[in-house]
Simulated scan of single mutants.
Amino acid sequence: MTDFLEIERRLGANTYKPLDVVLTEGRGVWVTDVDGNRYLDCLAAYSAVNQGHCHPKILAALTRQAGRLALTSRAFRNDQLALFYEDLARLTKSHKVLPMNSGAEAVETAIKAVRKWAYQVKGVPRDRAEIIVCADNFHGRTLGIISFSTDPGSRDEFGPFLPGFRIVPFGDADALQAAITPNTAAFLVEPIQGEAGVIIPPAGYLARARALCTANTIMLILDEIQTGLGRTGRLLAEEHEGIEADLTLVGKALGGGFYPVSAVLSNSDVLGLLQPGQHGSTFGGNPLACAVARASLRVLVEEGMIENAAAMGTRFLSHLQNLEGNIVREVRGRGLMLAVELHPEAGGARRYVEALRKRGLLAKETHDHIIRFAPPLVITADEVDWAAERIASVLH
């Protein structure tokens, strides 16, 4: 393992602070390192591996399609794209689909699309459109996206930034209402703020945001890149409040842990305005990505992973709630998107994450004092109990 770490430090850009574990194999919720040690993965690649590592049916779709046709660009059509549109639109009840690769690309696409809608449909003066976003958001790390980040680490020394954004507190519907102007094109929000530490808004917040957007002719954009595709115990987190976004952003688990796939899902009013040459991606909608995504969606539904996330999330949360005390300040969660926030005097979350690694469980700290737990949705009750025992032994 030491050789791998030395090469990374010598040749790689220092943009991450990973745990010193070098993984070489994964199956389901379990991963193995180069020294043969086995771990329960409680991060699932930030929800990109919802279906579990190396799911055999997704792997079969990948290898089958890779042996037939992998990439055409969008200059030509392929026989997987239309089927991908059909599967994803049927499942999510969307009218239009625009495939991209990364989650950040989906966010950038949505920003472009709603600005165009604002000028062509709402009548906002050219180059005056505004998008309302939330403090402590995380939508990616492109230059456009960090223009409305409130995280100094994401922004410092990367300016000048893209204008046209208003920032309001997350979960505060009154602040959202006060920020709306005639030039407001959209409200972009995560149903649950994942990177911020699994921050769940007050009940009714998203429903009121939906009502405000409707009343003021504003597009509601829900970034479901982490919360979507089963993570919270529903297909989409918006379902918890019975609402529908105008644009929904999905990614991560759409690729089943094998391939980067993202998509912007929309009503026809927004994506229907885009014309050839105004947006695109060489790899977006390629046949390999579409075949993988179709298989990823299929197993998610057919194997009951969404329902399992709800049941196992309740079980896991119950275990974690028993930890509240001298070290643990608060426990939060919905489905299998969970977090434990530690008291500041606990000495930071990293030391406990390292201790969990030594006990065979991989998790990740965020914002110094928070540990996130988000295992693949295929986790069993026995595996939840096994994980909870190790967490309790560290956070006692």
Rank of each mutant, 00 (worst) to 15 (best):
G103P: 04
C134W: 10
G103F: 01
A75G: 09
A237S: 11
D33E: 02
H139P: 05
A110D: 06
L59C: 03
V250K: 11
P287K: 09
E8N: 13
E241L: 03
L19I: 02
G230N: 05
R334A: 09
G67Y: 09
A349F: 06
A339K: 05
A44M: 05
N183G: 04
F165N: 14
V97Q: 04
R38E: 06
V328G: 11
L336V: 00
K96E: 15
E195P: 04
H95I: 03
A339T: 01
K122D: 12
P375D: 01
G12M: 12
K116W: 06
G251W: 09
S154T: 12
W30S: 15
V189G: 13
L62V: 05
G228N: 01
H95S: 15
K17W: 09
A339N: 01
Y85C: 15
I225R: 08
H396V: 04
R298V: 02
R329Q: 13
P375K: 08
S266L: 08
G159Y: 04
P376Q: 08
A349T: 08
P287N: 05
L297Q: 08
H139W: 08
D3Y: 02
K358A: 15
H240P: 01
I58K: 04
W386H: 09
G233T: 08
M1I: 05
V353C: 14
L320T: 06
A387S: 15
A48T: 07
P202A: 06
L212K: 06
P344A: 13
P160R: 07
P260M: 07
V49Q: 12
E389A: 15
E130F: 07
I146V: 15
A215E: 15
L222G: 01
G12S: 14
A211P: 00
H343R: 15
Q177M: 12
G256F: 03
E330C: 04
L362K: 12
A60L: 10
A209G: 11
E224L: 00
N14C: 04
V270L: 08
G228K: 01
M1C: 14
A173I: 07
E365N: 07
N267L: 13
Y259Q: 07
N322H: 05
A293E: 00
L206T: 10
L5R: 13
Y205G: 14
L395I: 10
Q193W: 06
R234H: 12
P260N: 12
A293R: 10
V292Q: 02
A392C: 00
G335T: 11
S296M: 01
L247F: 00
T109E: 10
G348D: 10
V353L: 13
I199E: 03
K116S: 00
D33Y: 00
I225W: 01
Y16C: 02
R77M: 12
A363R: 10
L91Y: 11
T366E: 10
G325K: 13
Y119G: 13
G52P: 11
A211C: 12
G144H: 05
G348P: 03
G272L: 02
G335R: 00
R64M: 13
P287W: 09
G251S: 15
D368K: 10
E239D: 09
S281L: 08
L176P: 14
G251P: 11
G255W: 03
A173M: 11
M305Q: 11
E195G: 10
A175T: 06
S149W: 05
G335P: 06
